[in-house]
Design a protein around this nucleic acid. Structure first.
Length: 1099
RNA sequence: GGGCCAUUAGCUCAGCAGGUUAGAGCGCAGUCCUGAUAAGACUGAGGUCCCUGGUUCGAGUCCAGGAUGGCCCA
């Protein structure tokens, strides 16, 4: 045995010690600064730019965060090895409502009034601290999963520099006239006095919420009705609503233009107008209803009617639209309420006439704006009906939901109410305080992205590569083509302050584009902008350039998505600093996040680039070229992971149990990156066992035997490669090609699955088939053996060191371990780390397609042969005389002959024979080759198929013989050659054979066991027992032994004598005795029923 | 209500220029092999390829409609 000091390679454990290995590897990377060097040692003029989508560190990272980080890591590592310089600047998203809500919760605040009482300055200070609270956990996780990114130089969206870059963007867009203020309908919590994001709204839906359902009469002005509807009495327009409190804000009624409307006569003499299709549903329970006239909805447009309430009379204003602006009306200019057409009018419920209150619904607002209806908002942001209680109805001053009852009672008393019911439906509530939300139109600031819709679509189409591709035109493109202007203002505190100042004298609004500009224009002393957040910035007044008055900043802050979309510029404080860095890194070659960022970060990045490019402020209308959109992680049941469901998987438990490489490998191999994936720790463990463990075993095998033999990489000169060696190298280079192509296409799964197939073949075919070559040294061996052994070492070494590089981007720890032990610690000139090494190149000359095909056939034959043995119940240890193989082509037959030795060895048979084509010992099945004949024959095919399936066996054999000579046969009047037919054969099933076959290949074993074969079988059984005893006795594989085998059984004794040299050679016995003193390590065995005592000692 | 994705064995997933008997891994049962051994090989059981129509000589694969789940948006 070799002295450890002389081992060429560092000995390793047979089990993959992932925890220790990963910790040591991280330490090595840290000490030797491998990450920094992996960037700096690549040429500065070959930058591959990566942008980090900033996470928010106000919560602990989950396994879904691990998913995106391992994909973010994979491609930069790959590109580095391909020779690119890949700087990776980290970043943190720090602003926004989620941060504020967390702080509100901690401080026990629940309204804006309470926040302002607490103090905006203190509140924002809390936000600043809260947002980085989990940063250490994030950094630990990042380090542990080996996501290489520079955290020490991470950008943070709350820094003054970052905010100033955002101001520059606002100013640039402002100068292009792309920013405006307008009202928009938003879900609003009247208790918290804030808009809620759709995400928040989605959390708060309650089913089965009871609400009033009332049917109201609006008295039409007779002279405005179409002539078909005019008659002597009054006509009422029938509308339906579940929000009586919005009725005072009514300013129109909407109908469907292409529906028929009916005027119906009620028994009491009154007339109601409603959609004809809904008459039965709405009035079916009233006896004597009669349709008096019909008219198309379009004809109703312009009909005017009496209002139910005139809120102007108790102190509310009415407004009219001027484009998107609202202008307050003087009382005497109010136009009458009127009927308009709209495409959202439902024929599923209600009356087909919809009450329109533009202040309280998205549809209503847009319709009011486009049709020029009045805008009334007699409700304040606290949800109270506004106005002078002494001048108005009883509901004035009441909370809207309480006002409902007053409105209903009032309308009933005035005869305006047809009926009232209660319905149950799904309604949104504030997820924090359970207050019903109101849809409320209020002013917001917008970026006019819709004006650049064509540019957005164009750069999406031509400049961005989506992975998966379908998102380009699907989820993203489809949404983009319906792009609406971006609402960027939030009535909140912790965010980038919007740099818009409005003159308190003349109302002119101006945008400030830098801190310098603000200091210059400030009234009084230049302000300290070391923290430009609210409230500091709120206190800065500037001089109005139009009238010389004082302008005050509007109170809103920016949508946090705006911050994230600004990162290509703001991370460098561009354009105030780092112009060259910006130019070098813009746009990113690669970004990666989960699919929910499609309309989040992916959009904000894209939109800001297009907007800035439109202003000629950046060189391209995109800030990224390749975007990898990851599917979400679901739990084992396919449910989304969320805290409230309690099914969140903690990444640490997975990392501790299986290691980072296993988790990474699972992420890559389990399913395509874009698909949602069901996650379970069990599957990570499976990935580890199936792949990492197999590779580790192969690596451990190599190190063990190389150390025994003292083989070093420098010994390469000798050794003529066998077919087996050439084959695995051929497969290796085909693998390089495949993996390279897959990673170029951002397809990690294809790369990983190819690697998995290769490692399986390496372990279970190449190494298994090569084992004897590695052992041969232990027996001294001839020159030919030494050559074959050297070739095996050289080949396996090449394969493992190449695999280390192919795997480096995916399993960086394991790849590093293999590389360092096999390469870096051997050769001072080699790359110190695999992550500093170059990506391997596929050499076409090494790829031998024919050999690959042949070996696949040999493996199939071996597999079939084992199946045949299994069918016959004959174990592989029992040698057999012959196997007969039938294959379809001459090339296949030649392959079987060429590799007969391998097949014989695999199947433990003495001889491999080829079955004769057409021999009557075989049965043939002939089928039409559908792929060829389908297009040619079409409808004739079924008849031919029937004829072929019912051929007599002799005729089938005859046809086979004919077509094999290249001639054609005629069946059902159709001339058929060998290409038109698929021929399958199976063994005739002789008494002494066992066979197995697949579609084209048949293997038949001679099952007759002669006495010598039986004896050899017994001898092999004994060898097996001796080997077990060697191992149980703790002997090293290379130890020589002395052996005593004693038996009373004549048959077994004869077998042992006949095969004594085989037994000795296989067990490394220098001496085999059949009696005499027993050695220290002993065992008793029963060999096919014959008793055997065996004992051995180290020689 | 709209868009996108998915639906194939008990579980996780392949397959799809339309082609004959739909595969792999895990799990289960059995057998074998073992000088990589907490591995490995073979066999078996296990499928209305979500449903309904259509195109076609032929559909898991293409088309239409629907169902269920996931995501995004109203």
């Amino acid at each position: 045995m070799s002295d450890e000091a002389h081992n060429p390679f560092r000995p390793i454990d047979a089990m993959l010690p992932h925890t220790q290995l990963e910790a040591e590897t991280r330490e090595f990377w840290r000490e030797r600064e491998i990450f920094r060097r992996s960037i700096e040692e690549r040429p500065a003029d070959a930058v591959f730019s990566f942008y980090e989508g900033p996470p928010t560190a106000n919560g602990a990272p989950g396994v879904h965060h691990v998913l995106s980080r391992v994909f973010k890591d994979l491609f930069p590592r790959y590109q580095t090895m391909r020779g690119r310089r890949v700087p990776r600047k980290g970043g943190w998203d720090t602003h926004g409502l989620p941060v504020e809500l967390e702080v509100e919760r901690e401080l026990g605040l629940s309204s804006k009034a309470e926040i302002e009482d607490y103090g905006i300055e203190r509140f924002n200070q809390q936000c600043r601290e809260s947002v980085m609270r989990y940063v250490e956990q994030w950094e630990d996780m990042t380090d542990r999963v080996a996501f290489w990114i520079d955290m020490s130089d991470a950008y943070r969206t709350y820094t003054p520099e970052y905010i100033e870059s955002c101001w520059w963007i606002f100013k640039t867009l402002w100068d292009q006239d792309l920013i405006y203020e307008a009202r928009r309908t938003t879900p609003h919590c009247p208790r918290c006095e804030t808009s809620l994001s759709s995400h928040e709204v989605a959390q708060g839906y309650a089913e089965d919420t009871p609400d009033p359902s009332i049917w109201i009469r609006f008295r039409a002005h007779n002279d405005t009705l179409p002539s078909a509807l005019r008659h002597t009495g009054p006509t009422d327009l029938l509308a339906w609503t579940t929000t009586p409190w919005t009725l005072p804000a009514n300013s129109g009624l909407a109908v469907a233009a292409d529906e028929s409307y009916a005027a119906v006569q009620l028994p009491d003499g009154s007339r109601l107008l409603l959609a004809e299709r809904l008459v039965e549903r709405a009035l079916g329970d009233i006896e004597g209803v009669r349709v008096a006239a019909r008219v198309d909805g379009a004809k109703l447009e312009g009909v005017t009617y009496e209002g139910l309430y005139e809120p102007e009379q108790w102190g509310n204003s009415a407004w009219r639209f001027e484009g998107a602006r609202l202008v307050e009306c003087e009382d005497d200019e109010l136009p009458a309420r009127r009927v308009v057409t709209a495409d959202f009018v439902s024929m599923e419920e209600g009356s087909g006439i919809v009450h329109i209150a533009p202040a309280f619904g998205e549809d209503d607002y847009l319709l009011g704006r486009d049709a020029g209806l009045l805008f009334r908002q007699p409700v304040d942001l606290r949800g109270l009906m506004t106005g002078d209680p002494s001048a108005g109805p009883s509901f004035v001053g009441k909370w809207v939901k309480d006002a409902d009852a007053d409105v209903i009672a009032d309308l009933d008393s005035r005869g305006q109410l047809l009926r009232q019911q209660t319905i149950r439906h799904t309604y949104p509530f504030c997820w924090r305080c359970d207050t019903p939300l109101l849809y409320y139109a209020k002013p917001s600031w917008y970026i006019a992205t819709s004006r650049l819709r064509d540019s957005l679509l164009d750069s999406n189409e031509h400049l961005i590569q989506w992975h998966p591709e379908h998102i380009r035109r699907g989820r993203y493109g489809d949404w983009l083509s319906n792009n609406v202007d971006w609402a960027i203002s939030r009535e909140r505190y912790w965010g980038t302050p919007l740099p818009f100042w409005r003159c308190e004298s003349c109302g002119r609004t101006d945008c400030v584009g830098s801190f310098d500009e603000l200091r210059r224009r400030a009234v009084g002393d230049p302000p300290d902008l070391s923290d430009p957040h609210r409230p500091v910035v709120d206190d800065v007044l500037i001089r109005c350039e139009a009238c010389g008055g004082e302008a005050r900043r509007i109170p809103e802050v920016a949508d946090a998505w705006f911050d994230s979309g600004a990162m290509p510029y703001a991370q460098w404080h561009y354009p105030f600093e780092n112009q060259e860095l910006f130019a070098e890194r813009f746009p990113a070659d690669f970004i990666c996040e989960a699919v929910d960022q499609t309309r989040g970060w992916f959009y904000s990045l894209h939109a800001e680039a297009v907007l800035l490019h439109n202003a000629e402020a950046v060189p391209e209308p995109t800030s990224f070229r390749h975007v990898l959109s990851l599917g979400h992680i679901l739990d084992e049941q396919g449910e989304k992971m969320s805290k409230s469901r309690g099914n969140v998987v903690d990444p640490w438990s997975v990392l501790d149990a299986h290691g980072a490489d296993a988790l990474r490998w699972y992420c890559y191999v389990a399913s395509p990156a874009g698909n949602p994936r069901r996650f379970s720790e069990r599957l990570v463990g499976e990935a580890q066992r199936r792949f990492l463990h197999t590779l580790w075993n192969t690596y451990a095998f190599f190190v063990t035997y190389a150390n025994i033999d003292g083989w070093r990489p420098g010994d390469r000169a000798v050794g003529a490669p066998l077919d087996l060696d050439r084959w695995i190298l051929s497969e290796l280079h085909a693998l390089i090609e495949r993996v390279t192509a897959a990673l170029e296409a951002y397809d990690a799964t294809d790369a990983a699955r190819a690697l998995e197939r290769f490692v399986d073949a390496l372990s279970n075919w190449y190494v298994r088939r090569s084992r004897r070559r590695f052992w041969s040294s232990a027996r001294g061996g001839a020159a030919a053996d030494r050559s074959a052994k050297a070739a095996a070492y050289e080949t396996l070494y090449t394969v493992l060191t190449t695999l280390a590089r192919l795997l480096a981007p995916m399993t960086p720890y394991l790849a590093e371990e293999i590389w360092r032990n096999l390469v870096a610690e051997q050769d001072a000139d080699a790359a110190e780390s695999v992550h500093l090494a170059d990506w391997p190149t596929a050499e076409a000359a090494q790829i031998d397609e024919r050999l690959n095909t042949e070996m696949a056939l040999v493996q199939r034959v071996a597999s079939l042969g084992r199946a045949a043995r299994s069918n016959a119940g004959i174990k592989v240890r029992q040698p057999l005389a012959a196997v007969s193989v039938a294959v379809p082509t001459a090339a296949d037959a030649a392959a079987v002959e060429r590799h007969a030795e391998t097949i014989a060895d695999e199947l433990n048979v003495k001889e491999v024979k080829l079955a004769e084509a057409g021999s009557d010992a075989r049965r043939y099945t002939i089928k039409p080759n559908l792929r060829v004949l389908g297009p040619r024959l079409g409808p004739q095919l079924p008849a031919l198929r029937g004829a072929l399936s019912s051929l007599a066996p002799e005729l089938a054999a005859h046809i086979v013989q004919v077509v094999e000579t290249g001639q054609t046969v005629e069946i059902e009047g159709i001339s058929l050659g060998s290409d038109d037919l698929l021929i399958e054969s199976e063994a005739g099933g002789g008494a002494d054979t066992a066979s197995a076959e697949d579609e084209s290949c048949s293997v038949s074993l001679d099952t007759r066991i002669s006495e010598p074969l039986a004896h050899e079988g017994l001898a092999r059984e004994v060898i097996h027992r001796v080997q077990s005893l060697r191992r149980d006795s703790g002997l090293h594989p290379a130890d020589r032994i002395q052996l005593v085998l004693a038996t009373d059984d004549a048959e077994l004794g004869a077998a042992l004598r006949a095969f004594e040299s085989l037994v000795a050679a296989e067990t490394l016995a220098t001496r085999v005795a059949h009696d005499g003193a027993a050695h220290p390590h002993q065992a008793a065995a029963s060999i096919e029923g014959a008793p055997l005592t065996l004992s051995l000692a180290r020689a």
